[in-house]
Design a protein around this nucleic acid. Sequence first.
DNA 1: GCCGTTTTCGGCCCGACTGTTTTCAGTCG
Length: 576
Amino acid sequence: MATSMMNTQIASIFYMIADILDILGEESPFKVRAYRVAAQTIENLEEDIETIVKQKRVLDLPHIGEGLAKKITEIVETGHLKYLEELKKKLPEGVVELLEIPGLGPKRVLTLYRKLNITSITALKEACEKGMLRTLDGFGETTERNILRGIQLKERTSGRVLLNVAYENGVKILEYIKRSSHVKECSLAGSLRRMKETIGDIDILVSSANTKKTMDHFVGYPEIEQILSKGSTKTSVILRDNLQVDLRVVKKKSYGAALQYFTGSKEHNVALRNLAIRKGYKLSEYGLFDKKTGRYIAGETEEDVYSKLGLSYIEPELRENHGEIEAASKGKLPVLVGYNDIKGDLHVHSTWSDGSDSVENIVKHAKLLGYSYIGVTDHSKSLRVANGLSEERVEKKIEEIKKLNHRYNDIRILCGTECDIKPDGSLDYDKKVLRKFDFVYAAVHTGFKMDEKNMTKRLIKAMEHEEVDFIAHPTGRMIGLREAYNLDIEQVIDAAKETGTYLEINAFPDRLDLNDAHVRLGKEKGVRFVLGTDAHMVNQLAFMRYGVATARRGWLEKKDIINTFTLNELERILGV
DNA sequence: GCCGTTTTCGGCCCGACTGTTTTCAGTCG
C-alpha cells in the first residue's frame, strides 16, 4: 500500500531492536516484547504513521508510550534511530540473522557468537560440519545435527507455501487421521484454518482417549519423510515435499479450548487471554478456568469458550486481533459469506484464448459444482501471447455460447471478456464491441512498471468507462513472484465506489488479489466485490474457496459479493 | 517499555518437547 512505507520501516526497526535485546540478554523480557507489540501495532496500522506524527497523535496509539513515541518521531524526522545504531555496534549484523534458523534462539545465538565468533549462517553451517558446536557447554552432537538440519530446511523451503498447497495436503492428512478408531474429533488449526494466503506449517488437532495409539497411527502416514519429535501430546513431522505438520492430541473436555488456542492467531490469543484475566478467568489450551478456585468453566467447544467470555462466536478467518474481539463483545460481527454461498464463477478462460478446456467442458464442471451461472472470460485482441480474441472471433464465441445456452437450460452461460487496459487507460475493444458482452472485466497485463500516479490514473480511467463492470486482479501482485504495481490503492477503492465498479477478489492461489487487508478497506468504504478463479483448467474452478476465504478475512458478507446473487439479480445488475 | 474493572507500581499468556542434564534451560507456538 502506498501509505505504508514508513510504517513498514519503523516496524522492522522495532523488530530488529527486540531481536538484538533478546540476544544481548536484556533482563526484562517484557521490554523486548513491548518492542515487538509496538512493531505489530505500526505494521497493522491502516493510517500513514507520518500523518499521525505530524498531527501529534502518536501517544494515542495502543502500546506506544512516551519512550517509543519519541523513537517513532525520530525515525520519521531523521530517517534513522540513534538507539538502533548504538545497539548494532554491540552485535555484528549477521548474528541477528541466525535467529531465523529453527531451533536457534537468542541464548544459543549469543553463545555461538561469544565462543566461536559466528556471525553468519554460512559460518554456522561450516562450524556444524566441522563438529565445533559439540564442544560448547549446553550443546551436544544432537543439537549440532538439528541446527544443520534447520539450516538445510531453511535453504530448501524458504519458509512458506501457498494456501492451496497446504490446504490440499491438510485435507488429505485429516482423511488419513480419521481412519483411526481412536480419533474422536479432528480439525485443521493454525494459519491454515484461518486461511491465510501463505502457510508456514500445517497444524492439526485431534481429540482422543488414547493419545499413544493416535500418535502411532499418525506417524504411519505414507507421505512422512522425517519425524522431528514425538511426544504424548505433540508430534511434528516433515512431509516428502518439505511441509512441516504438527499434530496435537487432547482430551475431549479440552478440545474446544485447544482448537481455539492452536488456531491462533497469536495476537488474537494474547488479547483473548487478557480479556479472560480481566474477567477473573484463566484461559489455556485445557480450558477456561476460574482464576481463584481453578474451577473448570468451559472447554469442550470453541463456542462455549467465546460465549463464557461474553463474546459471540468469532470465525477463524477473523482471528487476527484486528478488532474482531471488540466487535464480538458488542455483537457486531459481520455474518460472513459462506463457502457454499457462491452461485457462479465469473472469471474463467476457455480454449478461445489461453484456457485448456472448451466452453462446453467448463459448463459441465460448473454444473457439477452446483453453479447457476458461469462467466467465460477470454483475453482481448492485443494480448497475443494469450491468444486474445479479435472482433471476428468474439462474434463466433458469442454464437457458440448462444447455442450452448439452448442445450443447457439449468445453467446460464455468460459471455464475458477480460479486456486489456492499455497504458493510457483506454480499453482494447471499442465501446460497440464491449456492448456485445454480457459483462466486462478490465485488467492490466502489460506495462507493469509505470509510476504510481500514472498507474492509478490508468486504472481509474478504465473504471470510469461505462462498459466496464469489474476490475480483475486490481494490484497485479503474484505471491512470491511479483510485487503489486505501483498503485494508490485507496484512490482506486474510492474510484470504484464512485463509479460503481466491482473490484475482483481473484481466487487464484498465487494472486489472491485484492488481498484481505484491501478487501476490508474496500468494505469499510462501501465498495462491492466480484469473485473469480481465473481458472485456465476446469480443475482450477475449485480455487473459489480461496477467494471466499479472502473475502471472509476481509469481513465480507453475502450482500457485498455479486456472485452470491441469484441469476435474476445478477442479470438485473449487469443489464443483460 | 507499556498499562490500569487488582490503577501510577507491579504485573505483563502459558504449557510441551528436546537435549543435556541429574533438575532444568532453551526453544517454540
